[in-house]
């Protein structure tokens, strides 16, 4: 069963097409990054998925059903939308206990969830005194209350310090890879999710521009191998004879297309040429992201 399915989703606010025919899926056991610049339509998509915004057309389903029809939504989907959504005069624990009561969960889940995000010590403190990072953790703990198997997180790294971001990465990987959860996490900062996500969905101006695994996105079809060798005059023709396109970048440095690094190494060994560098070129993800979203 596909955990999250977005199909031809469209939503306009006035004359602005916030989301314009977006489709993608998220499977259990994986982290999917939902990327795009600010205002691309990420939040609107997630809010349609969670029944907070009614789409103009198309469907957004969790476990094959609309969110609003789920009998016990918090036990199936954990969502974090914005870190500011707390009453400042209410304590962290009270905030979670309210959600427990509304969801019919035992009150102990409030303390347990708070401990899972490292906030056990500040449960009886008013949220008004919390830093943005602490609010993010509290928001995440509210998503954990019902032990769901699907997580939908909107910019969860906002306001986290580097240690917090590192913690979040580990936590999301743990949820997806160890507990088999489906995680959809949006971000406008690529570097935040680059080391966490398995799959990437890129959106710009309301439209989907790219969907695929992180590996597919970073190793473009025309990926090249940089080869530095003692004797390029011998190696170059040998590689060309093997069917590669060889470009001489500078003295002693070749850029080879059509062969992978191990094939290059084998040919070098046959020709008794010493290799000093063999690098599989990966296109810079940030560059790809900017190209795809049209922000250069």
């Amino acid at each position: 069963m596909t955990a999250i399915e977005i199909r031809d989703l469209a939503k306009s606010f006035g004359s602005v097409k916030a989301v314009d025919g977006v489709s993608f899926t998220v499977e259990a056991g994986s982290v999917t990054g939902y990327l795009g610049p600010n205002g691309a339509g990420k939040t609107t998509t997630l809010r349609c998925l969670l029944g907070l915004v009614t789409p103009d057309s198309g469907e957004a389903l969790v476990d094959g059903r609309r969110y609003v029809t789920l009998p016990q939504p918090v036990t199936e989907v954990g969502a974090v939308l914005e870190a500011t959504s707390f009453h400042p005069g209410r304590t962290a624990l009270d905030h979670l206990r309210i959600l427990c009561a509304a969801a019919g969960l035992p009150d102990e889940r409030a303390g347990e969830s708070l401990a899972m995000v490292g906030l056990a010590d500040v449960g009886d403190k008013r949220v008004g005194g919390f830093s943005l990072g602490m609010r993010q953790r509290l928001a995440l703990s509210s998503a954990l209350l019902g032990r769901p198997k699907i997580f939908i997180l909107d910019e969860p790294a906002n306001g986290l310090d580097p240690a917090g971001i590192e913690w979040l990465r580990g936590f999301l990987r743990h949820l997806a890879h160890d507990q088999g959860a489906a995680v959809l996490v949006s971000s406008h900062v690529l570097a935040e999710v680059e080391q966490t996500v398995d799959n990437v969905v890129i959106i710009a101006r309301g439209r989907l521009v790219r969907q695929g695994s992180l590996a597919e996105l970073t190793t473009n079809g025309d990926s090249a191998v940089r080869v530095r060798a003692s004797d390029t005059a011998t190696l170059g023709p040998a590689l060309e004879a093997a069917g590669a396109k060889v470009e001489r970048v500078e003295d002693g440095l070749l850029r080879v297309r059509g062969l992978d690094a191990s094939a290059v190494g084998q040919i070098a060994l046959d020709q008794r040429v010493v290799l000093t560098e063999v690098t599989q070129e990966r296109s810079d993800l940030q560059k790809v992201f900017l190209e795809l979203t049209g922000e250069r």
């Binding site: 969670l50 029944g51 907070l52 969110y67 609003v68 029809t69 789920l70 939504p73 918090v74 969502a79 939308l81 914005e82 500011t84 959504s85 707390f86 009453h87 400042p88 959600l99 509304a102 969801a103 509210s142």
Partner: peptide, 18 residues
């Protein structure tokens, strides 16, 4: 109004979509 002011309405309706 405090639900709208502090945006707790999001969490409220996520927990109880009806």
């Amino acid at each position: 109004t405090s639900e709208y002011r502090y945006q707790t309405v999001t969490g409220t309706f996520l927990t109880t979509p009806r």
